[in-house]
């Protein structure tokens, strides 16, 4: 799942409401009954993932659904559809296998569409995750130094350059050091906080789609 295309969702919805929307779409997806509806929602989530700029490995996901269905077919139940030697394809096993496989794959699509690396966690853990991504970017900047032939030597040189055990914290940025909050800084924090709520309305609109579909299946009894 490489991010090769532009993230169209990110242009309208900030990471936090986006993540919240993803979480709010999970209950109707898990609660909805009937393979066609579940598959329809999975396709909707796949569309969201594509809009998020993710390149989905369709072959991998089809293989996953097929393998889950296959293992369910090994425990036959329901009407016999097909017999291939000792292997029996039954309606119950096939439907439950496909439902399980599609449910799992749909959850991955939804997660891929809803989660961004920019998503911030609160508290100390959030700070630590932020520092981890800072260092990750720093190591990635020097990854051209790595060679397959002398992998460990080149890795050691890269790590020494990016995080010298003797030199830090001198080579760390001010982000790691506590900076007193000035009025200007407070304004920036306020602006960032407002930006972090961007796109709540479109997020609510997207969330309502699976909820409406679930309510419709309940009301019509399909």
């Amino acid at each position: 799942m490489k991010g090769a295309h532009p993230d169209r969702i990110g242009l309208r919805i900030a990471p936090v409401p986006r993540f919240a929307a993803g979480m709010l779409m999970l209950p109707p997806y898990l609660l909805i009954e009937g393979l066609p509806y579940k598959a329809g929602l999975a396709v909707f989530f796949a569309l969201l993932a594509v809009l998020a700029g993710k390149r989905l490995r369709w072959g991998y996901f089809l293989l996953l659904i097929a393998s889950v269905a296959f293992f369910h077919l090994l425990a036959p139940w329901g009407r016999v559809l097909l017999e291939i030697g000792p292997f029996t394809v039954t309606t119950g096993a096939l439907e439950s296998g496909l439902t399980r496989g599609i449910t799992l794959v749909g959850m991955v699509f939804l997660s891929v569409a809803a989660v961004r690396p920019e998503l911030e966690f609160p508290g100390r853990l959030g700070g630590l995750v932020g520092r981890t991504f800072y260092h990750f970017d720093s190591i990635l900047e020097g990854n051209k130094r790595l060679t397959g032939k002398n992998f460990f030597i080149s890795l050691d040189e890269l790590l020494m350059e990016r995080f010298n055990p003797e030199a830090f914290p001198a080579n760390l940025t001010a982000a790691a050091v506590e900076i007193p909050v000035t009025a200007e800084k407070a304004d920036t924090v306020k602006a960032e906080s407002a930006g972090s709520r961007r796109g709540r309305l479109p997020a609510v609109g997207v969330v309502l789609i699976p909820w409406f579909l679930w309510a419709w299946t309940l009301l019509t009894g399909v």
Binding site: V115, V129, T132
Partner: peptide
């Protein structure tokens, strides 16, 4: 355990699988 948590959370955030069974 913190390194473990950072590894799993980071992978979930980068790959976008944080909210799925993969995580």
């Amino acid at each position: 355990l913190l390194v473990l948590l950072l590894k799993v959370l980071g992978q979930g955030l980068i790959n976008g699988t944080l909210a799925s069974y993969v995580f």
